[in-house]
């Protein structure tokens, strides 16, 4: 069973605040299969980003457990979490967060260099991935020389370069126009099918959500809907 599920969340709760407490997540239970392409939707303040940050082990829960590839990440040390993020997780945020002082190729190389891959090998792998996202001719460009859509493609390449088993996107098309959004979505879908990586996307865009394999709807920190998309 644990082989089928890449992520298993049990009774996950996150409470913020010392004075006035806010329960952002309230006993979430969720299993996500390997290779799924799913969307998390819900109104503002429903806990979507909080859930994503927990799965991405950027934050720790107040209670509950999260198993990634069968390993309980809630018990990990800071160092172990860093290593796991580098090897098993890729992140795409609404803002691309590319390092402005590095060009596209160097940005994509970064996760590889962090994991200790030699510079020459990292360069080779990064070139290939940038080609895959359609930016093979923009490798030497810095973020301020690329469009919003191009920067987001570089961010996607960076998220995928280390071949993570899970890719997390928090409103990955939030800053883009509809055409660019459509292109990005298609790219993500293509990569998901080709590499069988699990994609978990938070989105406000109901149309995009409808095109994923499954929709998880959160309301007030709880799973209100967990439905397979037939389309």
């Amino acid at each position: 069973m644990s082989d089928k599920y890449i992520i298993q969340i049990k009774n996950l709760t996150k409470i913020f605040g010392d004075g006035v407490e806010i329960k952002a997540l309230d006993g979430i239970n969720l299993d996500i299969e390997r290779g799924e392409f799913l969307a998390i939707i819900g109104p503002s303040g429903s806990g979507k980003s909080t859930l994503l940050n927990q799965i991405g082990i950027l934050d720790t829960p107040t209670s509950g457990t999260i198993l990634l590839n069968g390993v309980d990440v809630t018990e990990m040390s800071d160092k172990q979490r860093s290593k796991t993020r580098n090897k098993q997780l890729g992140f795409i945020f609404q803002y691309h967060h590319l390092l402005p002082d590095f060009n596209a190729l160097e940005n994509v190389m970064m996760p590889l260099l962090i994991s200790g891959v030699k510079s020459s090998k990292a360069r080779e792998i990064a070139r290939r991935v940038l080609d895959e996202v359609g930016l093979g001719d923009r490798m030497d460009h810095r973020p301020n020389q690329l469009s919003g859509g191009q920067n987001q493609r570089v961010a996607i390449a960076r998220a995928l370069v280390n071949k993570p088993s899970i890719v997390i996107g928090d409103e990955p098309t939030g800053n883009l126009d509809s055409k660019a959004s459509e292109n990005i979505y298609e790219l993500l879908r293509k990569l998901n099918r080709e590499h069988n990586q699990t994609f978990i996307l938070v989105t406000h865009d109901e149309r995009m959500a409808a095109k994923t394999d499954r929709i998880i709807r959160l309301v007030d920190g709880r799973v209100a809907e967990n439905s397979i998309n037939s389309g």
Partner: peptide, 11 residues
Amino acid sequence: EIGMLMAMGTS
């Protein structure tokens, strides 16, 4: 940038 470096696994 620091946040993103951490997200990428920088300790």
